[in-house]
Amino acid sequence: MVVDVVLKPEISDPQGQAVLGALGRLGHDGVRSVRQGKHFVLEVVGTPDEAELKQIAETLLANPVIEDVELHLPSE
């Protein structure tokens, strides 16, 4: 399973803004915004339990106060 974690849109992302600033200095003026996140790859034994994976993503991999998760299950 792959889990992508990104800051919620309303939470400012100073790291993404710093990357955006660097892009501007490199002449990449066409990039309007950058949001930095985390990418987790989980290997599981046997058939993945979708509910359990969702719980893992939402209770440990992401902090629901500030982050959103996107789950990509192997079957997709």
């Binding site: 800051l7 939470i11 400012s12 100073p14 790291q15 710093a18 902090n63 106060v65 500030i66």
Partner: peptide, 11 residues
């Protein structure tokens, strides 16, 4: 406790 602590705005 409520809320969260994130990277300092000035990094």
């Amino acid at each position: 406790l409520p809320g969260a602590l994130t990277r300092n705005s000035h990094l």
